[in-house]
Design a protein around this nucleic acid. Structure first.
Lengths: 199, 199
DNA sequence: ACCATCCTGAAATGAGGATTCCAAGATACT
DNA sequence: AGTATCTTGGAATCCTCATTTCAGGATGGT
C-alpha cells in the first residue's frame, strides 16, 4: 500500500560513516549529511531518527563492518606472531595511504570527543576495546603454543599493550605520522614480546 | 592614559584550557567561555582574538605548563627505567583520578578532532610528539648506560613505542579504562624492554 | 480506477553559534 | 580638571544548527 523508499538506507549509512569518521560528529552538520547522501531531510529523519541516533548507527556500522572483520581474522589466524604483524601492517597501510588516509579510526576518534559521554556510545567503545584485546590475546596464546613467545611474556599483559599500541597508531596517523616509523615501532614491540628474530 | 584590564588574562586562559580540554573545541561555545571566566565578550575578543586563536593559545599553554614540565623531568632524571616507570605512574594517576580524571590529554584529544587540520594546531601536535619521544629516548639512553636494557633493545624504536603507548593510555583513560589495568600494561611494556626484573 | 499509506521536497521554526558595535565608564598623564 | 585612550557591558548582527511541518506525489493492494 505505501510508497517505497527512493534510496538505499545501507548505502546512505555508509556515506554517513565516512562523514563522521573523517570530520567527527561535532563538526558535521545534518546539512552535510543531506548534501553527501542526496537524501532529503525528511527521509533522513524518518529513516534514522535524529543526529545522535544517526551517529550511533554509523558508529555501530563502523565497528561491525570495519573493525570486527579485522579482529576476527586476527583471532582465527593460526600463525601466531606473524598474524599480529600482518594485522598491524594492514592497519598502518589503511591509516596512512589510500582512500581513508589520515582519517584515523572512527572508534579511536570517538574516545577523544565529547560524544563519549553518551552511555550508548561508551558501550560501543568498550565493546571495541574488549574485542580488539581478545583478538590480540587469542593470537598471542596461539603464538605461545607454537613457542614463539619469550620466556617471561604474559599473553594477557601483552594483549593489553598491543591494543593500546593500536590506539596510538590510530591517533598519530591522523596527525600525519610517517608510515615507516610506525612500522618500525610495531616491529620493535613485537620483537620485544617474541623470542628474538621471531617476528 | 588608558584604562587597565579588570581581569587576569593568565587565570582566564587557564580556565579556558580546562574547558577545551574537557569538552573539546567543537563542543565549547564562546558563551561557555564567557560564563566560566566571567569575562565579557568584548574583553575576550580584544584580548585573545577569535575562537580559533583562543583555542591555539589554550593548546600552547597546555603544552608548556602541563606536558613540557613532565617531559623535562623525565629527560633529566638520571635513574633510567625507574624514571620512565614513574612517568607513566604519574600519568595514569592524573588521567584516572583527581580533578582531571577522565579528561584524557588535551593534545591527544586534538589528534582525533577536526581541529587537527589547522596547520598551527598540527604544529603543536608534532612538537608535543617530538618532545615526548625525545624525553623517552633520553631516559632510555640513560638506562642503557646503566645496563638496564636487554641486549636486543633499540632505544630509538623503544622510545617510539613508549610514546605511542602514552597516547593509548590517554585515549583509553578518557573512556573509563581501569587504572590498575593500565598500570599492569605499562609494567609489562617496560619489563619487555629492560633486563628481566629491572623495572 | 480507487484510496489508504507512506515518501518526498522545500520551507518554516526556533534555538544557539561566532562576531561586531557602540555608548558609558575607568584610567593616568598633562 | 581635562582629555586621549583603553576597557567594559550588553544589545545587535548575521549565520548555521537540528528539527518539524505540510502539501503534493508515488505506490500497491483491492
Amino acid at each position: 500500500m505505501p510508497d517505497i523508499k527512493h534510496f538505499d538506507p545501507d548505502a546512505a549509512l555508509e556515506t554517513v560513516v565516512r562523514l563522521f569518521w573523517r570530520q567527527g560528529v561535532a563538526s558535521t552538520g545534518i546539512q552535510d549529511v543531506v548534501t553527501a547522501t542526496g537524501i532529503n531531510r525528511s527521509s533522513l529523519y524518518a529513516t534514522f531518527g535524529g543526529k545522535q541516533e544517526l551517529y550511533l548507527a554509523a558508529l555501530r556500522r563502523y565497528l561491525e563492518l570495519r573493525s570486527q572483520p579485522m579482529f576476527r581474522r586476527l583471532a582465527e589466524d593460526e600463525r601466531g606472531l606473524p598474524a599480529i604483524s600482518e594485522f598491524f601492517g594492514a592497519l598502518i597501510e589503511a591509516r596512512c595511504s589510500g582512500e581513508y588516509a589520515r582519517w584515523g579510526c572512527m572508534v579511536s576518534n570517538a574516545h577523544a570527543g565529547a560524544e563519549n559521554s553518551d552511555p550508548e556510545v561508551r558501550a560501543v567503545l568498550d565493546r571495541h576495546h574488549q574485542e580488539l584485546r581478545d583478538a590480540m590475546y587469542a593470537s598471542l596464546v596461539t603464538a605461545g603454543r607454537q613457542g614463539q613467545l619469550s620466556a617471561g611474556a604474559d599473553p594477557g599483559a601483552s594483549a593489553d599493550l598491543l591494543a593500546l599500541l593500536a590506539y596510538g597508531v590510530n591517533l598519530r596517523s591522523r596527525a600525519g605520522a610517517d608510515a615507516a616509523t610506525l612500522r618500525r615501532t610495531v616491529a620493535a614491540a613485537l620483537d620485544s614480546i617474541g623470542v628474538r628474530a621471531a617476528a
